[in-house]
């Protein structure tokens, strides 16, 4: 127990700092790295570069926001990569025939994947780590099976109206469409989190599942919804990726399994559930985007980047993880 004498000392300041919401650390880190990279290479601080960072961040944002609710409920979604791969492949294949209708189709597929994940967890009672590891593998395999690489000609974008423009290249009110989509996506999820019963229940369940059940919260439905939103988020990421790269392929999503989790954690959401959310994830996505881009811009070795990013994630969890609830970390 602290004595009154050291309340003004360094220890007290450190304790006060530790009590700040985790998201503030992420914001501070974001500002710090933007300044750092700008000093190291002034080219970093340019509208052109911010555009690139923004696009990368939008993909992380869409994948991460879905992920963050599964983590808030105390679960995890490892099928994000599989959903991204599958939807990108399906999108590229269906867009010539369906046009803009390929978008809702892919989102529905993402939601369906999430629904399956959720039910594996809630009804068949397989831990989400295992269930989504399994479905993630299955989805990647589907992506390979329907991928036209070996059998048909490479994809050629249609010449007249190009539905890919919805995401890619097009601008509205002077803002790139990708940002508008990311912004709308964020606003929608923010609204759900703060102003709907489902959004609130996701957090109650994450904080205390038994109490939630005793208070009449439909646990099955709430967790299913969290996973469905994760599927929709991943599908959105898949659509943006496919539109930007003019292609979809089965390995496109692989890196997003871990980077979606990293995005959530960097934003300060707790892996123990019940805390964090979409605002944290937005900051996490921006931070991740700035780091990935900035390290390249200032010339950090590509392979070294991985270890720096890894170290940063560990530091983030060290700061944000609330150890008061658990005595021994497993």
């Amino acid at each position: 127990m602290p004595d009154s004498t050291d309340s003004a000392g360094a220890g007290a300041i450190l304790r006060r700092v530790k009590n700040l919401p985790a998201v503030l650390y992420a914001v501070a880190a974001l500002v710090f790295f933007v300044i750092l990279f700008s000093i190291l290479n002034p080219a970093f601080f340019s509208l052109f570069n911010f555009n690139i960072i923004g696009l990368a961040a939008m993909i992380l944002l869409t994948a991460g926001i879905g992920q963050c609710w599964t983590i808030v409920t105390g679960g995890i979604d490892l099928s994000v990569g599989g959903v991204i791969s599958l939807t990108s492949v399906i999108f590229i294949q269906t867009v010539p025939r369906l046009g803009v209708w390929a978008y809702p189709l892919c989102l529905a597929i993402g939601a369906a994947c999430g629904f399956i994940n959720g039910n594996l967890l809630t009804r068949i009672k397989i831990p989400s780590f295992i269930a989504t590891l399994g479905t993630g593998g299955i989805l990647v395999s589907f992506a390979y099976l329907i991928s036209p690489v070996a059998t048909s000609a490479p994809f050629v974008p249609p010449s007249r109206f190009d539905p890919l423009d919805v995401v890619n290249g097009a601008w509205l009110f002077g803002i790139p469409n990708a940002f508008l989509i990311g912004g709308l996506f964020f606003a929608a999820f923010l609204t759900i989190q703060y102003f709907t019963v489902t959004g609130r229940n996701i957090f109650y369940v994450g904080s205390n599942v038994r109490m939630s059940w005793l208070s009449g919260v439909n646990i099955v439905r709430t967790k299913n919804m969290a996973f469905m939103f994760s599927g929709i988020g991943a599908a959105t990421a898949g659509l943006i990726l496919a539109s930007r790269q003019f292609s979809g392929y089965p390995t496109i999503g692989a890196t997003y399994i871990l980077s979606s989790i990293a995005t959530v954690v960097l934003g300060g959401s707790a892996m123990t559930g019940g805390a964090g959310g979409v605002v944290n994830t937005l900051v996490g996505a921006l931070l991740m985007g700035v780091l990935q881009n900035g390290m390249t811009v200032v010339g950090v070795d590509v392979y070294l980047q991985q270890s720096l990013l890894g170290a940063l994630i560990i530091v983030c969890v060290w700061i944000s993880f609330d150890r008061s609830k658990v005595e021994i970390v497993k």
Partner: peptide, 17 residues
């Protein structure tokens, strides 16, 4: 364990139902 979400505030707990 069964009555409250301890890391949530008073309003969130009262309004839950």
């Amino acid at each position: 364990q069964e009555g409250l979400a301890l890391d949530f505030n008073v309003a969130d707990n009262i309004n839950m139902l």
